[in-house]
Computed example of a mutant assay.
Amino acid sequence: MITLSKLAKTFQTKDGNVTAVDHVDLTIDKGEIFGIIGYSGAGKSTLIRLLNMLETPSSGEVTIADKNMNQLSKKELRQARQEMGMIFQHFNLLWSRTVADNIAFPLEVKGMPKAEQKKRVDELIKLVGLEGRGGSYPSQLSGGQKQRVGIARALANDPKVLLCDEATSALDPKTTDSILDLLVDINQKLNLTIVLITHEMHVIQKICHQVAVMENGLIVEQGPVLDVFKQPKENMTKEFVKQVTEPEETEEAIRHLFEKDGIGQILQLTFVGGDAKKPLMTDIVRKFDVSISILQGKISQTRNGPYGSLFVSINGERELIDEVIAFIREQQVEVEVVHGE
Results as ranks from 00 to 15, higher is better:
282 T>I: 10
268 Q>R: 15
155 L>R: 11
76 E>F: 06
85 G>F: 00
258 F>W: 09
151 I>H: 06
319 E>F: 03
265 Q>K: 15
191 N>W: 05
209 H>Q: 12
260 K>C: 04
99 V>Q: 04
200 E>H: 13
281 M>T: 12
66 D>T: 09
227 D>Y: 13
56 T>Q: 07
161 V>E: 04
92 N>K: 14
224 P>A: 10
283 D>P: 03
155 L>Y: 04
330 E>D: 15
123 E>M: 06
9 K>Y: 05
164 C>T: 05
212 A>G: 12
63 T>N: 09
285 V>H: 12
42 A>V: 08
277 K>A: 10
98 T>K: 07
7 L>S: 08
33 I>K: 15
119 K>H: 14
314 I>S: 02
113 P>M: 05
101 D>H: 11
123 E>T: 13
252 E>C: 03
138 P>K: 08
181 D>P: 11
186 I>H: 12
185 D>I: 00
29 D>T: 10
249 E>Q: 14
224 P>S: 09
199 H>Q: 13
110 K>C: 04
204 I>N: 04
191 N>T: 15
214 M>I: 05
320 L>W: 01
131 E>Q: 15
54 L>T: 06
5 S>Q: 13
109 V>D: 05
72 L>C: 05
282 T>P: 00
330 E>F: 08
49 R>C: 00
311 F>D: 02
232 P>Q: 11
54 L>A: 05
77 L>K: 01
163 L>H: 04
129 G>R: 13
186 I>M: 11
88 F>I: 01
69 M>F: 04
314 I>H: 02
74 K>A: 10
55 E>Q: 08
61 E>Q: 14
157 N>Q: 06
220 V>L: 07
13 T>V: 08
267 L>Q: 01
87 I>P: 09
146 K>M: 02
338 V>K: 01
72 L>N: 05
176 T>S: 06
244 V>R: 08
332 Q>F: 11
66 D>W: 06
250 T>R: 08
103 I>W: 00
154 A>P: 01
335 V>T: 11
28 I>H: 08
139 S>M: 07
66 D>G: 10
273 G>L: 06
32 E>I: 09
182 L>N: 10
92 N>W: 01
37 I>P: 03
293 S>D: 00
193 T>D: 00
40 S>I: 10
171 L>M: 06
276 A>S: 14
212 A>P: 11
57 P>H: 07
290 V>P: 04
228 V>N: 12
213 V>Q: 09
269 L>S: 09
289 D>G: 11
302 T>E: 06
143 G>D: 03
251 E>R: 15
266 I>N: 06
93 L>E: 06
315 N>A: 08
254 I>T: 04
38 G>L: 01
174 K>P: 01
98 T>P: 08
313 S>Y: 03
281 M>K: 07
304 N>V: 09
17 N>S: 15
233 K>P: 05
3 T>V: 14
154 A>D: 00
316 G>K: 13
21 V>H: 12
2 I>H: 09
249 E>S: 11
39 Y>R: 15
34 F>T: 13
38 G>F: 00
248 E>V: 13
289 D>V: 09
